[in-house]
């Protein structure tokens, strides 16, 4: 069996009802949710507020019990510690201990995985560098900006070198450079054959990094499948050419129209605003030879 054939996450008819104090049903957060996430895949979980994304993640992590239905994470119950030892989780907000500094935070979470001290220190240093917090390794978390908190949150999610990483709004509060770095990191994780479940409101981010997505609405799975298939416009074709002259464009148009097809538009492609911003900032940063860090300490969370 290929790695990609293995299921990292499998839910069947998952239901979750929240109740009031007297045990009466109050909110149906999930209804018959069945999803499958294959190993090595980047899976995007999308939906408006209150659609059940965070509840799904909490169930997958064993934090919240489903009212009914079945859940398997890495082939085990989400409450099993064996499964949890192979999972990394970045919560929606960085719920961390604000009196610890970056190193102490990673050391503490490393101890929960029984990682030997030397290995913990090595991994902590590596992750702090990777998330661009080398300059703030001794700084207490209460002095961190929101973006810096997200970065250290991301680092703690990776302290155990997990097989499955659940990221809840990983780029929220981050500037475009930070966002780009996180997306690059997610793509690197895919290259390392890790499975990532990404939950985000930023559809552009999801589109860029995810192989598959599922869209939830009021706890119901509306659509799921590969991104390329779901986003493809079936009755149009896009042709991209490198460095064409106006004459060439015209020739291409005529050639296509001669086959009886209509050419809708011929224009220069645009880079995204994010790509433009990142290229400018990174250029300035490399000129000044400063480390990658970016958060404005004034904008503390």
């Amino acid at each position: 069996m290929k790695n990609s054939d293995k299921l990292a996450i499998r839910t069947q008819n998952l239901q979750k009802k929240y109740r009031d104090f007297w045990g009466r049903d109050k909110v149906q957060a999930l209804q018959n949710l069945s999803i499958e996430v294959r190993s090595g895949e980047i899976f995007g979980l999308l939906g408006p507020n209150g659609s059940g994304k965070t509840t799904t993640i909490k169930i997958l992590l064993g934090l919240v019990f489903p009212t009914s239905g079945q859940v398997h994470v890495l082939g085990q119950s989400p409450r099993s510690v064996q499964a949890k030892a192979r999972i990394g989780y970045l919560p929606e907000e960085s719920y961390l201990y604000r009196f610890l500094n970056a190193e102490e935070t990673l050391d503490f979470y490393g101890r929960l995985f029984r990682i030997p001290r030397r290995e913990r220190r090595r991994r902590a240093a590596e992750l702090i560098d990777m998330v661009g917090l080398a300059h703030a390794r001794k700084q207490p978390l209460r002095e961190f900006s929101k973006g810096m908190s997200r970065r250290i949150g991301l680092a703690q999610a990776l302290i155990n070198d997990p097989e499955l990483i659940l990221l809840d709004e990983p780029t929220s509060g981050m500037d475009p450079v930070g966002t780009r770095e996180v997306k690059d990191l997610i793509l690197r994780l895919r290259d390392q054959n890790k499975t990532v479940l990404l939950c985000s409101h930023l559809l552009a981010d999801v589109e860029e990094v995810c192989n598959e997505i599922a869209i939830l609405k009021t706890g119901i799975l509306e659509v799921s499948g590969p991104v390329d298939e779901l986003l493809a416009v079936r009755d149009e074709i896009e042709i991209r050419l490198r460095r064409t002259e106006n004459q060439t464009n015209e020739s291409v148009r005529q050639a296509i129209e001669s086959t009886g097809h209509e050419v809708l538009e011929i224009k220069h492609p645009r880079v995204s605003l994010e790509e433009l911003f990142v290229s400018i900032v990174e250029k300035n940063t490399s000129e000044k030879s400063e480390p990658i860090s970016s958060e404005n300490p004034e904008s503390k969370s």
């Binding site: 992590l61 064993g62 949890k84 030892a85 999972i87 989780y89 719920y95 979470y109 995985f113 703690q156």
Partner: peptide, 14 residues
């Protein structure tokens, strides 16, 4: 309540 426990309980902590 402030969900700091979440980051602990999602680790292999019984």
């Amino acid at each position: 309540g402030d969900r700091r426990a979440f980051t602990i309980l999602t680790k292999p902590v019984r």
